[in-house]
Amino acid sequence: MQAEVKQTDQEVKHAEHSEFVSFTVAGQAFCLKITQIREIRRWSPVTILPHAPADVLGVMNLRGAVIPIYDLSARFGLQQTEASERNVVIVVSVHGKPVGLLAESVSEIISINPDDIQDTPPVDSRNTMEYIQGIISHDDTMVRIINLDAVISAPEQVML
């Protein structure tokens, strides 16, 4: 492939490496592709949605648009996050709609070679298998790559 296309080293590096934003949720390291993220905001109290499941924190005003905020920790089946000003909301775009994800804190931007991504080893949890696309070792810690489409289902089904 490289030989055929005859790219310079620099270009090859760009073509192969993707950048991910890593963050922590309930003490565990996760990451999302940087292109999936629209913006990162400091947590501010949201408006509660009545009858909402535990992982739906409520809705937030994003420059005039009403967007739902999910607690990633609760979504993954971990304990619910006690949201405070130190926490962040990662605004992503899923199914063409902006959605906010509450995370503990954002760590750094990491460059990942797709070849380094390992498949999620089978564990005894269906949700985990679905929500985690793969894992990667970065600075001796395991970083989980989130499968966004699986975590946030199509808007119509969210509340059902």
Binding site: P45, V46, T47, L49, P50, H51, A52, V56, V59, M60, N61, G64, A65, V66, I67, P68, K97, P155, E156, Q157, V158, M159, L160
Partner: peptide, 26 residues
């Protein structure tokens, strides 16, 4: 502000609006 596409139908809530302090109200 319609809640269509933000969440499903919520019993008791017709829509949302944005108040003067920037907060959303049902």
């Amino acid at each position: 502000k319609s809640l269509d596409g933000v969440c499903g139908e919520i019993a008791g809530v017709a829509a949302a609006t944005i108040l003067g302090d920037g907060k959303i109200a049902m």
